[in-house]
Write a protein that binds this DNA or RNA. Structure first.
Lengths: 166, 166
DNA sequence: CTCCGATTGTTTGGATACAAATCATTTTCA
DNA sequence: TGAAAATGATTTGTATCCAAACAATCGGAG
């Protein structure tokens, strides 16, 4: 949200708009930088790693979650990945059509659908994830190595708080 | 990306998949928590503040940027807000139809479109932004007050890095 | 002056995402 | 047991977003 203008410039402008109220600029900086960072990193990873494999962000997350936990129920994929079941259905169909994973009906519960990678899907992830993680490392190394765990924990705490307000 | 499973559980699973490679789990934690936090906070703000005013996230950002910097050229709105010109065109039309802002052609350069809030739009933002900032404050206060500036700065640096890799 | 390339906003076409409705299956409990 | 409630995935309809093509305008080289 804070783009080409610096935070200080934006602060000055906001103060002109709201002289009488007291605005928490530090909080504003936290959230606006949070959104910009997430967007920028996602775009970066899409460009550097995912685009050449013709994978959307969500498609990659589905493959990743499945790769780690297979065999896995679709509802778990949706929960781990953080998107709706409706979204997942479409992505699964696409990935199944491309031969990267398969759907199977659960034998214990006919309502459930179980997902597994194909060997083609596994081979893809074997090469894709290290490349992905390399870029993740480059991003994380922007902050001092000694501060990365703290940063991750702060973000995790923010997530927990925001999700608890459903 | 790290959902119901803890990071430790995911680590163990990933190690089983990639015993021979060395994966940077700390970096993985930073990025995955970054995405989850941004999503959770955005959803939280949409629910608590924006939904009752029937505003989408992008619509709010457009109003906010315009409110702060008006009169403003559309290309600046798109840049500050971090979305494409195509997206902006649609959102501007919606907001103009709802009487919250107006488009005017620039007199100096016929290609440019200048945007200003209407008094109705200004009145909306006068009440909306304090409520929004109150929720931002609640989110930011999840981390110690003394650490908020550092967090914002780390996120800003990450943004800068990711965007520099275009 | 007059092209011609650059810039800007809009339109078009397609991808993505989700809520609500629907269909199939399982579980509950009277 | 069996009807109703609950659960899970899919379909449907709608909103959002973007890249690429397009139209309008500007500005400079010749």
């Amino acid at each position: 949200m804070a783009g080409p203008h610096t935070l200080a410039e934006t602060e000055r402008q906001v103060n002109q708009k709201l002289v009488h109220k007291n605005i928490n600029f530090e909080a504003m900086a936290v959230t606006s930088n949070l959104f910009r960072a997430a967007n920028a990193v996602r775009n970066h990873l899409e460009r550097t790693v995912l685009a050449k494999n013709d994978l959307s962000w969500t498609a990659f997350v589905v493959l990743w979650v499945t790769w780690i936990w297979e065999p896995i129920e679709t509802r778990q994929i949706a929960e781990e990945g953080g998107f709706s079941k409706a979204t997942l259905t479409g992505v699964l169909s696409t990935l199944e059509k491309r031969g990267l994973l398969v759907r199977k009906k659960s034998k214990e519960d006919g309502r459930l659908v179980i997902v597994e990678l194909t060997s083609k899907g596994r081979k893809l992830m074997d090469s894709l994830f290290p490349a992905f993680n390399k870029q993740e490392t480059a991003v994380a190394n922007v902050v001092a190595s000694s501060k990365q765990a703290q940063l991750a924990e702060q973000l995790r705490a923010i997530t927990k708080f925001a999700e608890s307000r459903d």
